[in-house]
């Protein structure tokens, strides 16, 4: 255990945990756009930065990655910190002017759009938080999507932006996307869904007869979990 101070509160915490984890456990709010409890932190949104003082050195660190240590003093709302957060939100608002989630978050933090930034017009809602890519790789385990290009051109897509042979149509990427950028369309009858340009046939529940999961996803689970496909033929509601 180590002793540290966050926003003038003395806190005891387990060594090796991150500032963000410890702050949240103690009811101290630090905004984030790229963290999720089932994913390893990546430090890409930069909203969670805090000012950390260790010994004589004070610097801005990423709270989702920085491990707590004995004697650490953390300020989660210093002027330098708020300047970074304001900038990040204004930059994201200019990139994704259509995103309701961003507008809401900015309003909560009292941040308005920077008039000097011309809003992008390509209707992209992706903030490149990487949650979809990390989920697909680490949670689902298929790595059907990744990044293409670099810098301002960077985008999430399937390899070569073609239909992915490894995608199982599970939709985890769409569910985790914080801004609703990833679109998944299901037909009226529910017999198929389309995501990342590929259409997946849905399987019906042998009990209730409703469409409940892509056939490819069931086959994938059967194969990786070594469960016969027949055992996966019933939807969650009927199980």
């Amino acid at each position: 255990m180590v002793n540290l101070t966050i926003d003038n509160r003395k806190i005891e915490a387990e060594a090796g945990r991150t500032i963000l984890e410890v702050a949240r456990e103690n009811g101290i709010v630090i905004p984030t756009l790229c963290t999720h409890e089932s994913l390893e932190p990546t430090g890409s949104c930069r909203l969670c930065v805090v000012e950390a003082k260790q010994g004589k050195r004070t610097r801005i660190v990423t709270s989702c990655l920085y491990p707590v240590a004995e004697g650490l003093t953390v300020d989660t709302k210093s002027e330098r910190v708020m300047n970074v957060r304001r900038l990040v939100l204004q930059l994201l608002l200019a990139r994704c002017p259509e995103s309701a989630q961003l507008k809401e978050m900015a309003a909560e933090m009292g941040v308005g759009a920077e008039p000097r930034f011309t809003p992008d017009k390509d209707n992209v809602k992706c903030i490149l938080c990487r949650m979809c890519v990390r989920t697909c790789e680490k949670v689902v385990g298929v790595s059907a999507i990744g990044f293409s290009y670099r810098g301002t051109e960077k985008k999430v897509c399937t390899p070569f932006q073609e239909e992915s042979a490894t995608c199982i149509g599970c939709g985890a990427c769409a569910y985790i996307c914080p801004t609703g950028h990833i679109e998944m369309e299901t037909t009226k009858t529910g017999d198929s869904r389309t995501i990342w340009g590929r259409t997946f046939k849905m399987a019906t529940c042998t009990v209730c007869g409703r469409y409940f999961a892509p056939e490819d996803q069931l086959k994938y689970i059967s194969r990786t979990a070594d469960v016969p496909l027949e055992n996966l033929a019933v939807c969650i509601s009927c199980r």
Binding site: V84, L91, R116, L128, R150, G151, T152, E153, K154
Partner: peptide, 22 residues
Amino acid sequence: LVNESCGKCVPCREGIRRMRDI
């Protein structure tokens, strides 16, 4: 630097290009 930013984090990817635009 706009062209060489890897695009991982927001301040670099979005911020430098806005500075460039100004």
